[in-house]
Nucleic acid binder design. Structure first.
Lengths: 231, 231
DNA sequence: ACAAAAGTGTTAACTATACACCCATGA
DNA sequence: TCATGGGTGTATAGTTAACACTTTTGT
C-alpha cells in the first residue's frame, strides 16, 4: 500500500491477555509465556506479535491467539493502547492490548506448552516485561467492570455448568464472598439460564444441576433494550 | 531509535473527540473541522495528527488538542484504536481515538476558526470521513457510561455553575428528562458541591445559586474507596 | 400582578441484604 | 449414619422513582 501522508512509521504490536477459569482449582488464570526474543528473552510476557502491513488489527489479535492457543472464535475484545516513546528498548512500538476469555477445557495444551506458555493464577503474577504489568492490572479492572454488565462469565465456563461453579467464578473475579442464596435468585431471575436434566456429581454426592446460558434469548432481549446487570 | 525487531512499520495517528457544552444553548457539542489534506480534503473530520517517532501517544494527543484549540491541561482520555487494513485510502494508518472534555468558555475561538473547525450539535452530526462516524458513536457511548460513575460533567461546565445548568447538562448527555427534585437530592447528597453565596441571574429573575465541585474532597474520598455513582 | 424559573418533601415500589436450615447421596 | 456440598424463603433496610406546589423577583 502506498502512503501519501508524511509522518513517522512505527511497529504496531498486539498483546493479548488470555483469561481462563480452572473449574477444579476454582481459580482465575492468565496465560503468560516465556519470551523467546531479545530484549528480555526468558522473561514472562503476555502473548503477542506485530501487526502486518495488510492485516486488520483485530485479525492480528485473532492470529496471535490462534498461534499460541490453537483457539479461534472465542471472546476477544480490545482494551487499551500503550505508546510511551521509550516503552520498549527494542524499538518504537505501539502496543494494542486485547483480552480474551476462553473455556480452559477447550485449549490445546500441547500448543500452549510448545510456546513455553503457562497458566498462572491471577493472584500470583510474576513481574512481566515492559508495561505488561500495567496491561494486566488494567485488563483485570476491565474484566471486573464488564462482568457486571455483560454475561462474560459464561465465556469462561464450559457450555454446561452448575450454579455453584458460576458462583465460585464470580467470587474469583471479584475476590470476595457472595451470598449464595441471593446470587442464585438474581441469576435465575434473569430467565437466561436453562436448567438441564443432568447433574454434575464430581463435586458432591448430591450433585448439582447443570445449566446452559441462553444466548439466543439474551440477544433477543438485548435487541429489545435489555441490560444485563448483576450487583 | 534503532529497531531490533522485524516487522512492518506503519503510521500511527491520533483522532480526538472534543466535547464541549454550550450552557446557553443547553446543548452538547463536538468539535469537527474541515480537513485540509487529501484524500477527503474539505470533508468533516475529527481533529487529529500523526504520532512522532520520539513522542508518547498521550503527548501526541495533547499536542493535537493544543494545536487545534490552544488548550492544555484539560480532561483527556484514551478511547479505542482503529486499525482496519483499508480504513484509510491514503495509507496504512492505525488511529488511536481520545476524548477530551472542555469548558467551552475557555476555548480560544480564534485558533479554532483558524483551523476551519466548528462546534456541532451532537444530535446533528454530518457524515464525517473514514471511520470517524464510528469513533464518534463509540465515544458518545463511553461518555454516557463514564459520566455515571465519574464526575465528568464538571469538566464541561465553568468552575462556577448552577444546579439547573448541571441538570440540563446531564439531560443533554443522556437525551432524556431527569426529575429535578431527585437529581438535586442525589447531587447534594454526595457532599461534593460547595454552595456559593452568589446567584446567576441570567436565566431567571429569582436567580440560581452558584456551586463549585469540591475536587480536593473528591480525591480524598476516592483514596478512601469512594465511588461516584449517579442513577 | 403576573410570568418564569428556582427551590423544596413525602410516599410507594422496588431492590439489596442478611440470615439458617433441610435435602440427597455416596462412602 | 454421617459427612459433604446443594438447594431453598423470608423479613428488614435501603434505595430509587413518582409526584405538585410555593418562592422569588424583574418587568
Amino acid at each position: 500500500m502506498t502512503t501519501i501522508y508524511e509522518g513517522d512509521k512505527m511497529l504496531v504490536a498486539i498483546d493479548c491477555l488470555v483469561f481462563g477459569y480452572d473449574v477444579h482449582e476454582e481459580k482465575l488464570k492468565l496465560l503468560l509465556f516465556k519470551r523467546r526474543i531479545n530484549p528480555f528473552a526468558g522473561s514472562w510476557s503476555l502473548i503477542g506479535g506485530f501487526v502486518k502491513e495488510e492485516e486488520d488489527i483485530l485479525d492480528a489479535a485473532r492470529r496471535v491467539l490462534r498461534d499460541f492457543t490453537g483457539l479461534d472464535n472465542v471472546f476477544l475484545e480490545q482494551l487499551t493502547s500503550y505508546g510511551k516513546a521509550n516503552r520498549d528498548p527494542g524499538g518504537r512500538v505501539i502496543s494494542i492490548s486485547y483480552y480474551s476469555l476462553i473455556k480452559l477445557d477447550d485449549i490445546h495444551f500441547d500448543k500452549v506448552r510448545e510456546h513455553g506458555a503457562k497458566w498462572l493464577d491471577i493472584t500470583e503474577m510474576p513481574d512481566p516485561i515492559l508495561d505488561h504489568g500495567d496491561m494486566i492490572a488494567q485488563g483485570l479492572n476491565r474484566l471486573k467492570a464488564n462482568a457486571r454488565t455483560a454475561p462474560l462469565s459464561f465465556e469462561l465456563l464450559p457450555e454446561e455448568f452448575t450454579l455453584p461453579q458460576l458462583l465460585k467464578l464470580y467470587q474469583s473475579i471479584y475476590q470476595k464472598d457472595i451470598d449464595d442464596r441471593n446470587f442464585r435468585k438474581k441469576m435465575l431471575a434473569t430467565g437466561l439460564l436453562i436448567k438441564l436434566d443432568k447433574k454434575d456429581k464430581t463435586a458432591s454426592k448430591k450433585g448439582a444441576f447443570y445449566y446452559q446460558f441462553d444466548k439466543e434469548e439474551y440477544h433477543e432481549l438485548v435487541k429489545r433494550g435489555y441490560y444485563f446487570d448483576l450487583f
